[in-house]
Structure formats: structure tokens, C-alpha cells
Write a protein that binds this DNA or RNA. Structure first.
Length: 579
DNA sequence: GCCGTTTTCGGCCCGACTGTTTTCAGTCG
């Protein structure tokens, strides 16, 4: 069976969706593919779900689409997709990706001028062939020209690690203007999506014009895309778009909820409301029978008006959170304030850029009760990793420095998991450590079976506390090495080994959909920064964001426990697996 | 194509803005 990631499958489903619409299929028929794709993006791996018979029955995935996904995994393609693609080239999807060109325009350009790709479109625009096309005036053609430039410059989606700091920067900039109230990041950034298409900022103001004027003058804005009375959009270098909306205070809750999404969550929420005779929009909640419109100043009020508890933004993915909220079983996810420590950080003894003392001082300054320094083991190369003697010497110094800074500094190491699943240090050395983070750093392209066995063997080592960045993925460039997720999650739960959610913005590993799957096995998680400098200790917030997307509660987080609780977790595993 | 504390058939979230138009289609979120 071909191993396609959910993201790849979702891409194919969306391709089908677009081509179906292009072909003139009924609205709700092609929309079903879009909803199924969105569900899949936040679900456990499809191959695993098929094996366990759980795929059909996921929100928006019925018999037909489940069958098509299975067909794709088995044969590498979907006959229905190929049929569509034979009539309508998939390059039309690029044309539709140009801002300003929607389905109707693309259809008429294809039918009348044979425009089937971005290159076709560019040629037609340059040749003036679009002049005179119905409903395409001068301004529309200008928009299309800009849209083509943006499409080419846009490239990939922006990682959260770049988008969130930018969002906070513009919020601070607008704040300094003094005219904006309730400035909030909304949209996919607020939901902590790993990558985002744009940045949404909303606020209220009694002088919206002043806020908009300040926004479009931001010195980092490359171009102003739109500037209206309550809404403006700018582009940054590289094509990232930032939208600002200035809203009346009395509907702030409705609007924040609306603009936070996800779209799938909002659709489900509105369908739920319709069944209660209520119509939800960004303008309020309309009681259809009485005609009364209820406006809300806060999101909590919005959900309460529908008889629901507040649903945290990171959980609004349309993957069962509404059903759980209705049933009263929605867990309260872990938050940054729950964390009492951080197990994964490096200093200049290995590949960190700040000194041992600087890292300890910074951890203490964050208010942690404990933390561990986990520099690399020597297998990573003598220049980078520590040998057992260096590790002992570091441990002694770290404990002493920690005491001076009023924090318990645990002795740890990020130990390489070798190809066969054994570790880079022998048992005698590992036994001296308080915490052991075991990670895969090399030989990532071994077979799926070999990688599964390698990770399970690491879990079965009594001294391994945490598996670091369990999939090895890179948010932008590498989907992660292949292994049987369920088998490893089961092993982690069985052996009392925590799985890390690594907070480095380039990693965010475990991915949240997998973490949610792991949760079903009863796994304990470690939310770590994997900081390589003192400033990067703050990256643990990214880890928390992903954990919240996975519905992880404080009780399931090792570093939300007291120091005694952590020591008990370590001791329990060591005594259960004696050797 | 999916789905069900009114339904296995008949529904399916909601609105704003823009540009091209004399009342609205198309696009976007």
C-alpha cells in the first residue's frame, strides 16, 4: 500500500472538488469533497483509520469518499479524478488561485479563449485578449494582473513561527497608535495552524479611520491591497497578506468568533444553531421565530447563547469538538500557565548558543519549579555531543547553578536513538540521569518496519523518559520518517514513556493530529521548547498551542506535574522494566 | 455526497465588498 500523508490525500480531494465545480456538478456534491478534505487534514493517518475501520464515519466522510480514499491509497490514483482531469486540466487550479478570478471567470476564459493555465492567462493579459470580455472592465483586469504577481510571489504558506511574531508585531504597532481597542489576532494564527495563508487582525475603535490609516502606513507593508472604512489589507515582502478589520464593540464577540473560524467549525456551529431556530452570523444571533437579534461582546457569550461552553480557538477544527461541547465532554486543554518546567533545552556544552548559567537563569526567570538541561550525546560527534565524563561534570555544575537561581535543575541528555533502537549511552550512564530524552537524528530513511521497531525498542528502555520530536518532521521541508504510529503510541502508553511535542517552530512535533491519536492510547506528553538559546525557551508556547489542538489536558502532561510527580513517573517506569 | 432528539429524503451557514451595472453577479472570507 502506498503511504500517502493525509495532506497529500486532502490535496487530491480538493483537486477533485475544484474540477467537479468546474465541470458544473451540483454545489453540495463538490462541497462534500472539500469538507472531507478538511476533516482529513486534522485526522489520524488515513491508512491507519482504514485499517481500524474508522475512516467512514468521520465528519463529512461517507461511503463514496471513503471508498475513493481507499482507492487512492491502494492504486495511487482515483479513476474519477483522472476522468475529470482528462476534460479539465489540473493547471486550471492555478488560474483559480489568482485573486480576482473565481469560478465563473475561469470557466468563461477556458471556454471562450482556451485559457487553461497560469501561463495561458499571462499571455492573454499581455496580449490584451481579455479586453472586452463580459464583466471584465479595466479595474478587474488590473486586479488580475496584480493577482498573477501575488500568486507567483506567494509560493508556500507561511509557517506559524514566522506569522505569529509578525502578528504580534503589528498588534503592538497598532496598539501604540492609541485608537484601537481589543486588538486581537484571529484566523488561522489564533487557531495555531502550523502554516497560515494570511494574518487576520481585528479590533474595535471609536475612530476606525485613524486605525486603518495607521495600518496601511506600516513601514513593513510592501503594498496596500485594499483600504476601506472598516477593513484594509496589506502585503508584506514575499506576498504574505495581513487583513485588518475594525468593528463595533457591541458585536466584537460575534465577529471574533466569525473571523477565528475554522470555516468548517463555523459551518457546523451554524447548522447546529439552525436546528434550534437560530441564525448565527458575524452580526449576531438571530432568533428566526421572534426576529430578535442577540449581539455579544465576548465569544463566551456567543457560545453561551447557543447553550454551549466556550470552545478554545485551537480546538475549532470541525473534528468533533461541537459534538463534545454539546455532550458536555469537551476537555479543558492544557495552557501555558499549567507548565511547571521544561525538559528539553541546550546550551553551549553542545549546540546551544547561550551558556549553561544563562539557560538556567532564563528557566528560573520563567517561574518554573524545575527544568532539565538536555545537551546532545556524543554519538552526534565529539564536537557537538557530551561523553559520559563531560555529562557528569555538567550535571554537578548545573545542580549547583540551579540552586543559586532557586530552581531545580535536573540532569538530562538528549540521547541519540541508534538505528537498532539502542541508545548512545550505556545503562550505567543513563541510570545517573534524572530525565532521558531519546531522539532519532540520523538514518531516517530506514524502512517503516525498522523505524517502528527502533522506536518501540527505545520506549522499552527503562531509562528513556521522553521520545523527543517523535516523527522528525520539518514543518516546511520534511513530512517525517515513516513508522506505524499506532504501534509506537501503544508502546509508549504501555511502557510509561512520554512523547514530546517539540515547540521549535520548524518542528512542532508530534503534529497535533497525531498527538490527538496518541491521546486515545493513554499516552503522557512532554511539552518542551527544545530551546537552543535563552530567548527560545518561549517557544514552549508553540508546543502548548499544538497540544490544545490535540485536546490534551494538564493531567496528561508530564511537565504540568509537580517535581514529585515527575520523579514518580520516572521511577515507575524504571521499576516496572527492570534489567 | 453527507446526514438525521422533527427526516433514510430533502435538506445542506452567512454575509460583505467590488466592479460593472441600473438591480446584481462574482468573489472572497
Amino acid at each position: 500500500m502506498a503511504t500517502l500523508s493525509n495532506a497529500e490525500i486532502a490535496r487530491t480531494l480538493k483537486e477533485i472538488r475544484t474540477l467537479m465545480e468546474f465541470a458544473g456538478e451540483p454545489f453540495f456534491k463538490f462541497m462534500a469533497y472539500e469538507r472531507a478534505a478538511e476533516t482529513l487534514e486534522n485526522a489520524a493517518p488515513a491508512s491507519q483509520l482504514i485499517a481500524s475501520g474508522e475512516l467512514q464515519g468521520l465528519p463529512g466522510i461517507g461511503k463514496t469518499i471513503a471508498g475513493r480514499i481507499a482507492e487512492l491509497l491502494e492504486s495511487g490514483t482515483i479513476a474519477y479524478r483522472d476522468e475529470l482531469a482528462a476534460k479539465y486540466p489540473t493547471t486550471l487550479i492555478d488560474v483559480l488561485g489568482v485573486q480576482g478570478i473565481g469560478m465563473k471567470t475561469a470557466q468563461s476564459l477556458f471556454k471562450e479563449q482556451g485559457i487553461a493555465s497560469l501561463a495561458d492567462l499571462e499571455r492573454a493579459v499581455d496580449a490584451g485578449a481579455l479586453d472586452g470580455v463580459a464583466r471584465l472592465g479595466k479595474k478587474s483586469i488590473e486586479n488580475i494582473k496584480r493577482g498573477i504577481l501575488a500568486f507567483k510571489g506567494r509560493g508556500t504558506r507561511t509557517p506559524l513561527g514566522r506569522a505569529l511574531p509578525l502578528a504580534l508585531e503589528i498588534v503592538a504597532y497598532l496598539e501604540a497608535g492609541g485608537k484601537a481597542r481589543e486588538l486581537t489576532v484571529a484566523g488561522s494564527v489564533r487557531r495555531a495552524e502550523v502554516t497560515v495563508g494570511d494574518i487576520d487582525i481585528i479590533c474595535t475603535s471609536t475612530e476606525p479611520g485613524d486605525v486603518i490609516a495607521r495600518f496601511v502606513k506600516w513601514d513593513r507593508a510592501e503594498a496596500v491591497l485594499a483600504e476601506g472604512v472598516t477593513k484594509a489589507s496589506i502585503w508584506l515582502a514575499g506576498g504574505l497578506q495581513i487583513d485588518l478589520r475594525v468593528l463595533p464593540a457591541d458585536v466584537f464577540g460575534n465577529l471574533l468568533q466569525h473571523f477565528t473560524g475554522s470555516r468548517e467549525h463555523n459551518i457546523q456551529l451554524r447548522e447546529f444553531a439552525v436546528r434550534k431556530g437560530l441564525r448565527v452570523s458575524e452580526n449576531g444571533i438571530l432568533d428566526v421565530a421572534t426576529g430578535t437579534n442577540t449581539t455579544c461582546r465576548t465569544e463566551t457569550d456567543v457560545y453561551a447563547a447557543l447553550g454551549l461552553p466556550f470552545i478554545p480557538p485551537e480546538m475549532r477544527l470541525g473534528v468533533g469538538e461541537l459534538e463534545a461541547a454539546i455532550a458536555g465532554t469537551l476537555p479543558v486543554p492544557v495552557s501555558l500557565a499549567d507548565l511547571k518546567g521544561d525538559f528539553h533545552m541546550h546550551c553551549t556544552w553542545s549546540d546551544g548558543t547561550d551558556s549553561l548559567e544563562a539557560m538556567i537563569a532564563a528557566a528560573a526567570a520563567r517561574g518554573y519549579a524545575y527544568h532539565s538541561i538536555s545537551d546532545h550525546s556524543w554519538g552526534r560527534g565529539k564536537s557537538m555531543g557530551l561523553d559520559p565524563a563531560e555529562l557528569r561534570s555538567q550535571a554537578a555544575r548545573a545542580r549547583e547553578i540551579g540552586e543559586r537561581h532557586g530552581i531545580v535543575t535536573l540532569c538530562s541528555s538528549e540521547v541519540d536513538i541508534r538505528t537498532d533502537g539502542t541508545l548512545d549511552f550505556d545503562d550505567a550512564t543513563l541510570r545517573e540521569l534524572d530525565i532521558v530524552v531519546a531522539s532519532v537524528h540520523n538514518a531516517m530513511n530506514i524502512s517503516r518496519d525498522a523505524m517502528t521497531a527502533r522506536l518501540i525498542r527505545a520506549c522499552e528502555n527503562p531509562y528513556v523518559t521522553i521520545i523527543g520530536h517523535p516523527t522528525g518532521r520539518n514543518v516546511q521541508s520534511f513530512p517525517g520518517y515513516e513508522f506505524d504510529y499506532d504501534a509506537v503510541f501503544a508502546a509508549a502508553a504501555r511502557t510509561g514513556t512520554a512523547l514530546e511535542i517539540d515547540g521549535q517552530p520548524g518542528r512542532l512535533d508530534l503534529p497535533s493530529a497525531l498527538a490527538r491519536r496518541a491521546r486515545e492510547f493513554g499516552v503522557t506528553f512532554a511539552l518542551d521548547s527544545d530551546a537552543h538559546s535563552a530567548a527560545h525557551l518561549a517557544n514552549v508556547a508553540y508546543s502548548v498551542g499544538q497540544a490544545r489542538r490535540a485536546w490534551i489536558t494538564p493531567a496528561e502532561v508530564l511537565n504540568a506535574r509537580s517535581l514529585e510527580g515527575v520523579r514518580a513517573f520516572v521511577a515507575a517506569k524504571r521499576s516496572a522494566i527492570a534489567r
